[in-house]
């Protein structure tokens, strides 16, 4: 499988930014783990991070053009503001998971709204940095589930 792992603003500060919430693991370390886990399972994982909304939209559009099998997206603060990312994800028909390191629903109320949750297949949050590797580990199974889901949806 070809997988894009897309990370939004401030995720590059992992390890130093509010470690009591986001943990001590750096983005580089998470990225290495994801790529390694992917290699083990025969996936091609591309791991990216941007502080710019437009660049993230561009990557999602690229995933559409390249027919990427799955997107794992931690849009960080853009989760709660970006209609542009919502629209881009809506146009992407592959398997898509919204991921967060902490659980936004247990934090400030401005984090309770997600523009992304309604256009993805699933949400994984609050499992720390390990959330990434757990998702990659199960992606093959998850994609099967997704195909089955769409197949049965199409029968209506």
């Amino acid at each position: 499988m070809n997988i894009y792992v897309i990370n939004g603003p401030n995720i590059n500060l992992l390890g130093t930014r509010e470690p009591e919430i986001y943990g001590k693991e750096t983005l580089k370390s998470i990225s290495k783990k994801c790529i390694k886990q992917g290699l083990r399972d025969g996936h091609d994982v591309k791991f990216m991070q941007s502080n710019y909304e437009g660049e993230i939209v561009g990557w999602i559009q690229n995933a559409i053009i390249e027919k990427v099998d799955a997107i794992v997206i931690n849009a960080a603060a853009y989760t709660h503001t970006s209609i542009a990312i919502h629209d881009a994800l809506k146009s992407y028909s592959g398997f898509k998971i919204e991921l967060h390191i902490s659980n936004p629903h247990l934090r400030e109320t401005f984090r309770h709204v997600s523009y992304i949750s309604s256009v993805v297949d699933a949400i994984v949050a609050g499992l720390g940095a390990d959330g990434y590797s757990h998702v990659i580990e199960l992606l093959a199974d998850l994609q099967k589930h997704y195909k089955q889901k769409n197949k049965s949806l199409n029968t209506f």
Partner: peptide
């Protein structure tokens, strides 16, 4: 601290 997983069947 509560984890959250939704939509994976």
């Amino acid at each position: 601290e509560v984890g959250f997983v939704s939509g994976l069947g």
